[in-house]
Amino acid sequence: MKLVFENISKLYGDFPALSGINLSLENGVYGLLGPNGAGKTTLMRIMTDLLKPSTGRVLLDGKDIALLGADFRRRLGYLPQDFGFYPNYTAEQYLLYIARLKGLTGFEAKKQTGALLEMVGLYEKRNQKMKGLSGGQRQRVGIAQALLGDPDILVLDEPTAGLDPEERIRFRGIISNLSRQKTVLLSTHIVSDLEAVANEIIFLKKGHVLTVQKPHDLLRELDGMVWTVSVPSENERGFTEKYPCSNIMHDGEMSVMRILSKQKPHNAAAPERPNMEDLYLYHFG
């Protein structure tokens, strides 16, 4: 299965939200990383045929998804950024409703709903109304509905927003298990989630794709560029104004900073292994 973005652009009036996006996605997990306003949600909406691109098209195995219509959507699972729900539906009722809209029979809908609620740890809450669930619990229902019908293509926009660390680890496990036979596009600001599950990361900035690479290849680019420096707090500002700084910790009268620099920034600076946050800062800071 191959999903191809062919010269995708999207204009909102005169504002170019996306420009000349060319991507090819196959099975695996693709992380979509970029600052607010980079065009991540716009790209995802175009990919799910919810938004018409100004130019270009998205092809699934060579066929335009806009023309495939329901045949494409049958293979799609989507979790939008602001996941909406019917407040008076219970979690189970909501999933059953979505399952029927996805074309599942009554029996299959019931079976998959139960299994997915179990998977996301909400089986005991299945009869609770959506409005009575916490934000994280509703998000888990959102993840469950995206997985209904065992879709080949999963588009998840900020799926771990509102989830606690345990739930995020559970989610990573779910995605890792599913990724072998599916194409998963995952957008998040929690870069550690991508580091754990993504096969490739797509960097998006101001509507353009900066790069598409494997996480360890991207991190290798930063080898020798990440340093830990410990200085008196009154000298902190001098460093933060001069170098991108991914973390500052205050330890008594000292400031311990994690900075990016091609050269050793200070005699006492110690080299560190780069992580995804350093990578994010390097490209978007």
Partner: peptide, 22 residues
């Protein structure tokens, strides 16, 4: 109008039968 009020239309419209048939 309920799908716009509850912001459920992206999920509904991304399903196989959530558009014309519904």
């Amino acid at each position: 109008s309920v799908d716009y009020e509850n912001n459920t239309y992206p999920v509904i419209a991304s399903t196989a039968y959530g558009r014309k048939k519904l």
